[in-house]
Write a protein that binds this DNA or RNA. Structure first.
Lengths: 333, 333
DNA sequence: CGTGTTAATGTGTTCGAACACATTAAATAA
DNA sequence: TTATTTAATGTGTTCGAACACATTAACACG
């Protein structure tokens, strides 16, 4: 169309230089006129590279919370395998920082194009981030954020805002003068953000007179845990509303069952089987869905579509904070 | 690898016949061994067809509910344009059945590969479906379902279940002996399903003693509408909980503002600007998000990915019924 | 034995972009 | 003027699949 060869057009498109002003203008004019967009399919066919996406996540056998994340990875992997995207997973023990470091080392030495990871250990994750940077491996974080000096992508929820969502639900269903406990079970550092958001909501709300206190428990030994819960309730008789900041609400419910029966409000996280059971039975009022499946799936998908079709990347994608009751739960699993 | 030419392999892959048993077995063995999957990119490049997806939806200028659906179409259209997928839209007047028929006629005579539509008029939609079938045009329905003899795809929500979700929320926040009104504003036939689901929930719930009655209004004349609402409330003093079955909750709230102030519970649909405003202010307690943007986007995306990459198609995709409060609304818009 | 017929197999081109390589034109030095 | 450099432009091949077309092999028939 411009009266030049494809070689010249190619040089204009890729700015490879060696083009006369006259030729450049002719080509540029035509490109604008026809609003030229490269065919991403043909481009990809020619480049014909296989991309490696390595994923570092807690072993779903050690903590069932990670089962859907693992499935999200598998789903994305199957979807993009035919396009030459290779996904490899590394499981670490969420209770063992050294296993995280070991697996991350493995992942990094195989030099993938991207590392997707859930950075549940703050300090160690910073170390991994540094190494990835040195090895020019892009990093995508999911599940929780860590503040880092480096450019990387985050896919997940705003944890503070998710605390506020829990608070707004609590506010709608709670009795006028009830007191509330924020329950951390096996607390990880990022859960504090949920507590902060929760408290902030009630602080902002004028006329709110609910006492909000927070309490940590360890669930390693079941008997000990149940006793701790029992003791806590005995010394806080007027508390009958609970916000559990992770997926372990069902453990709390199980502890309740050894105590006297009464109306309690419980808001928790994540659609684990036992949580779903208690949601259906009414022992849990609301669950907040953290979408681990979607986070992991999107992490892989975004990078794959970026590599394959040149799609843009967000630096931070905050996923919706879904509110789940017995009646809409079926659609989220 | 099998010691035959690509022509023979091609004949085996596409079952074009004229292959000796010996050659077939050699090729088949290798295909299985290497778990051969055709490269969808190369396939698509060769086929190099442009696909036409035509969309029939209510004019977003006539009813703002459809604005996000329209945006979803545009987004999908931009995403798949480079791959040779052409999307064309036809707007009809949601208050004028004849305009629906006229636009559908236009859409069908241009013989697209797929017709995506929101079938808000029952009878007329059946007619369109019939014609599409005769012209071998696949159909994707979104927003609401119509029972049809024909195979077609539906993307949207289970409306009856969405009524149940509303009921479960109502149940959590309502006072013990309060009465509830189901409000239909400019009722369309599919809204009855929401009413049915809502009532079903309370019928199933043992020990529930809330009176539930339903009432239709027309909002064409604002003054008349406000008077009707006022009259209705006067003759039903004990009703202070409302379930509005479409996106028009804000109109009801506006009518309330001319009446005496008091605590009222309102659950409605859709994240329109005025609804969002009243949600933030607390005049609306919950909104249910029907995801018009996602429905429309997925309708186009599913078909595009099917054509381009041979992805499978669901026959019915029920989207999650999202519960929205002031604190998580921001993520859904 | 040659010829036609059909079954079986092989070859060449195309899609759009990327890139290596070849060629031509203009400018400079010998 | 001719050789040499370098700037500018053109040509050919490749990616993996699809498909048109060409070729070979096998066998029957006059």
């Amino acid at each position: 169309m411009a009266g030049v060869s494809k070689g010249t057009v190619d040089r204009v498109l890729h700015k490879r230089g060696k083009v006369s002003k006259k030729a450049f203008e002719k080509v540029d004019k035509v490109l604008k006129e026809i609003d030229y967009r490269p065919n991403p399919i043909a481009r990809n066919l020619k480049i014909n590279k296989t991309y490696n996406i390595h994923v570092l996540l807690p072993d779903p056998r050690k903590d069932p919370y990670w089962i859907p994340a693992n499935e999200g990875i598998i789903e994305a992997s199957n979807q993009f395998m035919p396009f030459g995207v290779m996904v490899k997973k590394y499981f670490y023990d969420p209770n063992d920082r050294s296993s995280f470091l070991e697996e991350s080392r493995q992942a990094i030495i195989s030099q993938p194009d991207v590392l997707l990871m859930a950075p549940i250990f703050d300090n160690e994750s910073h170390e991994v981030l540094k190494q990835c940077c040195e090895n020019k491996i892009s990093v995508v974080l999911f599940n929780n954020h860590i503040n880092s000096f480096k450019e990387q992508i985050f896919i997940g929820q705003d944890l503070k805002q998710s605390g506020r969502v829990a608070a707004s639900l609590m506010d709608k269903v709670i009795g006028e003068n009830d007191e509330i406990a924020i329950i951390h079970i096996n607390k990880e550092p990022h859960m504090q953000q949920k507590e902060n958001g929760f408290k902030e909501f009630f602080k902002e709300k004028s006329g709110s007179k609910h006492l909000v206190l927070s309490k940590e428990f360890n669930s390693a030994e079941k008997r000990r845990f149940n006793q701790d819960v029992s003791d806590f309730l005995k010394s806080n008789k007027s508390i009958n509303a609970f916000f559990v900041t992770n997926s372990k609400a069902y453990i709390l419910i199980e502890a309740f069952q050894e105590l006297e029966k009464r109306e309690r409000i419980v808001i928790g996280y994540d659609l684990l089987k036992p949580n779903m059971k208690y949601l259906k039975e009414g022992a849990i009022n609301f669950l907040i869905h953290q979408k681990p499946h979607r986070q992991a799936f999107l992490g892989v998908s975004y990078m794959a579509e970026h590599f394959l079709f040149g799609k843009g990347l967000p630096t931070q994608e905050f996923l919706p904070i879904d509110i789940v009751t017995s009646e809409n739960a079926q659609y989220y699993i």
